[in-house]
Amino acid sequence: MRRSEFQRAVRDEFGGRASTVVTDLVLSSVGGRTASEAIDAGVDPRQVWLALCEELDVPADRRYGVGRLEPRRN
């Protein structure tokens, strides 16, 4: 997962509170950091996304493959 895909996934899942979730919620599974701090420290965005999902009880069917753009059509 790229950082841009992470950002898209967070925005799509959490809407207007996406910014707060990324900057304020401390995640123990990524070293007691916020999502933003963890990514800045080099933690894989996919790991951070899954940590957010676990912490905020995002259903499993909305955790995988999110954040990707649909393929372009010719």
Rank of each mutant, 00 (worst) to 15 (best):
L50S: 02
A9L: 05
P71C: 08
R62C: 08
V10Q: 02
D44W: 06
E70F: 12
A38T: 03
S28D: 10
C53I: 07
E55L: 02
S29G: 06
L69N: 11
T20W: 14
R17F: 07
G67Q: 05
S29P: 15
A35S: 08
L69A: 11
M1I: 14
V66G: 01
Y64A: 00
L56H: 14
V58H: 08
S28C: 03
E70G: 11
S4Q: 09
G42Y: 10
A51K: 13
L25T: 08
V22F: 04
S29W: 13
G32F: 07
S29L: 12
T20N: 06
A51L: 10
D12W: 13
V30Y: 03
R17M: 02
A35W: 07
V66R: 12
D57E: 13
V22A: 00
R63K: 14
R62F: 11
A51C: 09
R8E: 01
F14E: 01
G65D: 04
L27A: 00
S19C: 04
P71Q: 09
D40P: 07
E13R: 15
E70P: 04
R73E: 11
A41M: 07
T20D: 05
R33K: 11
D12A: 10
G42Q: 15
V48F: 01
V58N: 05
L25D: 04
D12T: 08
W49N: 02
I39H: 02
I39S: 03
V21T: 12
D61A: 07
D57A: 15
P71A: 12
S4V: 03
L56M: 14
V30K: 00
D24P: 00
S29D: 11
A35H: 01
A35P: 02
S28Y: 06
R63S: 00
R73Q: 14
V43S: 01
G15W: 10
F6C: 04
L27I: 02
V66W: 08
G15R: 15
R63V: 01
R11C: 04
E54R: 15
V30I: 07
N74E: 14
P59F: 12
A60I: 06
G42R: 14
F14D: 00
D57R: 13
D44M: 10
L69M: 11
L52W: 08
G32E: 05
T34H: 05
L25A: 06
G15H: 11
R46I: 06
A51T: 05
A51E: 00
W49M: 00
W49S: 00
R3S: 05
A35M: 02
E5S: 11
G15T: 13
V58W: 09
R11T: 05
R46L: 07
G42E: 08
R46W: 07
R2Y: 15
A60M: 11
R3F: 04
E13A: 10
Y64M: 07
V58A: 06
R73F: 15
D57G: 08
D24Q: 09
